[in-house]
Design a protein around this nucleic acid. Structure first.
Length: 427
RNA sequence: GGAGGGAUCGCAUAGUGGCCUAGUGCGGCAGUCUUGAAAACUGCUAUGCCCGCAAGGGCAUCGUGGGUUCGACUCCCACUCCCUCCGCCA
């Protein structure tokens, strides 16, 4: 959410953001401003009438009961008029509030303008892509022949995009999550196990609603399943006032993530890359309302994600996302794409964003600065490790010619095997 | 799932239709006193919005949303959350 006064004073800037983010069909800034003007106009009328009513009521209370009838008559007519205006005010306010939820944040100056993913910029590539002496298998072939992945039964039980991880595959996934968590603990972040079932207001608060409502599983009581722990983590301090000395707040959490993947029909249908359900270690930081500081944290959090990949020795590249390929609330976003040998392609495994006060306004998270002024915090979030997607990358990059998979060095302390060998019997 | 109790200012509590412009205590801030500190005393102590250059004025907020009333912290309805007990349960 943006400040309405900011929108009114920077109409052109906000309109450009709407266009650059390809959101012209979802929000009209002109209509928003008109609605707010109307709202203020009505508010003035309502407040005037309320003031009048309050004064009359006060007079009535000071007059003997038998002398009240004239005043009560007058107050009754003021009340009738007030009711008319109040009804209209409520309606206008509701319209305005709804419209406000659709206003995107303004991208940072260094974000490239672009319509879609083709406008993204490669910032750098890290790690060397190994030339394999053999034709690499994809993670599905590997997973099946090693009996660590079962997609057929996954589909039988879970439907489309359902999967079972099995044997060493299931263990390797746990090791990855544990490895990622340990890195974040070493960085001094606070670990949280979070609610997976969350009230809708916090999806709105983090900016997933209204834009992404369709991609979420709704429960019969109106709550929804989180698509990322970011929702719970960022909402943790909702409606609270923090001390400046408590900032930056650094949190991470491990949770399952649920996504309908509506709008992704036909995309990544093979393997365990795009799923309805996966696990993710997510990092969230709340900082003071300072552009420099939030940008420093944006880079620092990118570094944490990079360290996960560097530790695993996986080649990856850093992508600066363009306006058309970032979320409505995001101000700047990097994606990390990890190398998948079977496709000779980098594919998205991490996403690192900052929001300024976009989420904090929606969630009402403030802090009192050294001058005593209340300000909204700035929020950021980034993937630490998302699996089975990252697991698939590990499987493919650590495969050997004989079809076995070597366990990455950093994961061995969590496992009692160093290599995953083909099974004699697969059932 | 059943039965009861509750939600008031940072915290704790008072408040059962107009005296609430929400009292009191604690905490916090400032000052007096003191070499310094403590104690004591004095004062201050929320948020959002509207009008205004400002000084200042107005409106709203006692869990949330409706309703009754000239007037609601107080009465009515619905909802949310918390606590106690019973049942069920990893």
């Amino acid at each position: 959410m943006l400040d309405i006064n900011f929108i009114k004073n920077n109409t052109d800037l906000v309109k450009k953001a709407v266009e650059d983010k390809q959101l012209s069909k979802t929000i009209s800034i002109d209509k928003l401003v008109e609605t707010h003007d109307r709202y203020v106009e009505l508010l003035k009328k309502v407040e005037l009438h309320r003031s009048l009513r309050n004064k009359l009521s006060e007079s009535i209370s000071k007059v003997a009961a038998e002398d009240r009838s004239n005043l009560i008559n007058e107050a009754t007519s003021v009340k009738a008029e007030l009711n008319t205006y109040e009804r209209e005010l409520t309606e206008t306010k509701n319209t305005f509030d709804q419209l406000m939820l659709w206003v995107p944040s303004v991208p940072a100056d260094d974000v490239p303008v672009g319509e879609d993913e083709s406008g993204n910029k490669v910032v750098r590539e890290e790690g060397s892509v190994k030339e394999l002496a053999f034709k690499p298998k994809d993670h599905v072939d590997l997973g099946v022949s090693l009996d660590i992945l079962d997609l057929e039964r996954g589909a039988k039980i879970g439907g489309f995009r359902g999967y079972f991880l099995k044997n060493e595959g299931a263990q390797l996934e746990q090791a990855l999550l544990r490895y990622a968590s340990d890195l974040m603990l070493a960085e001094g972040y606070t670990m949280l196990s979070v609610p997976w079932i969350v009230k809708p207001e916090f999806f709105t608060g983090t900016g997933y609603f209204p834009w992404g409502e369709e991609d979420h599983y709704r429960l019969e009581d109106g709550k929804a399943l989180i698509g990322t722990a970011e929702v719970s983590l960022t909402s943790y301090y909702a409606d609270e006032i923090l001390k400046e000395s408590d900032l930056p707040v650094r949190l991470f959490g491990l949770s399952p993530c649920f996504r309908k993947e509506i709008g992704a029909y036909g995309k990544d249908t093979k393997g365990i890359f795009r799923l309805h359900q996966f696990s993710k270690v997510e990092q969230v930081v709340l900082t003071t309302a300072n552009e420099e500081i939030t940008r420093e944290w944006h880079e620092k959090m990118l570094g944490h994600a990079e360290n996960v990949l560097k530790g695993l020795n996986l080649p990856y590249r850093v992508l600066l996302m363009c306006t058309g390929d970032m979320g409505a609330g995001q101000v700047k976003k990097y994606d990390l794409e990890t190398w998948f040998p079977s496709q000779s392609k980098y594919k998205e495994t991490h996403s690192d964003s900052y929001f300024r006060d976009f989420q904090a306004r929606r969630l009402n998270i403030k802090y009192r600065d050294s001058t005593g002024e209340l300000k909204y915090v700035y929020t950021l979030n980034n993937t630490v490790a998302a699996t089975p997607r990252l697991l698939a990358a590990v499987m493919e990059n650590y495969q050997n010619e004989d079809g076995s998979i070597t366990v990455p060095e950093v994961l061995r302390k969590y496992l009692n095997f160093d290599k995953i060998l083909p099974k004699k019997k697969i059932i």
